[in-house]
Amino acid sequence: MDILVIEDDPAIGKAVQQGLNEANHSCTWVREGPLGLDYAATQKYEAIVLDLLLPGEHGLQVLAKLRERGIKTPVIVVTALGAVGDKVEGLGKGADDYLVKPFEMAELLARIDAVCRRATLKPAARLQVGDLRLDLATRKVTCAGVDVELTPTEFSILEMLMRHDGQVVTRKMLCENLWGSDWEGITNVIEVHMNRLRSKLHKGVKQPLIHTIRGRGYALRAS
């Protein structure tokens, strides 16, 4: 995918560019709002990553101008401001998603995927990874042909993992998907659910499907 990154911080800009390139995206990185606006107007991008605290023109102004010109490219707003008010304002001005610094590359990639899918594809009715099948309509899960009984929470976790098949899904992403926002306490609320899910899935399966990736989160791998 072609992605435009408007970010003035050189360290973050460079890291994001590298991360996107490694995930097989092509990335244009500009450091000023007006320049970014020109790029967005003249070239076709599938997503725009926009920092809010830009020198000169504020990111929200850039966003407003972008939408004024009729550019409907999905925009993920990135900022160091964690306040709820800015989030509301950003989404109100036409942003498709919102990410607070510091963020993880996995999270940004997942969100880019999500906003692009939202913009183009219809959600699949059925997900399949290896022997694992998940039916979104009937909310049924089968593993190697055997029905697996899951709680709604476990179902959602599995759905998220299957949607990001082979990629890392962080605890934060899971938390936000399940319960609206991240949990910043010490207690690992995801892990317990994850362990239950694992024990249900791994019954009769020799190779583990869900892998814990230290310091990052979880990944579903079929092989």
Partner: peptide, 27 residues
Amino acid sequence: RIDGRRSTTRLDDIVRESLDMFEAVAD
């Protein structure tokens, strides 16, 4: 900067959601 004028929340929904979140931990 925390103020209640901007939005409202169904507290019962939040309680339900939080119960779901901690249910496994408590268990």
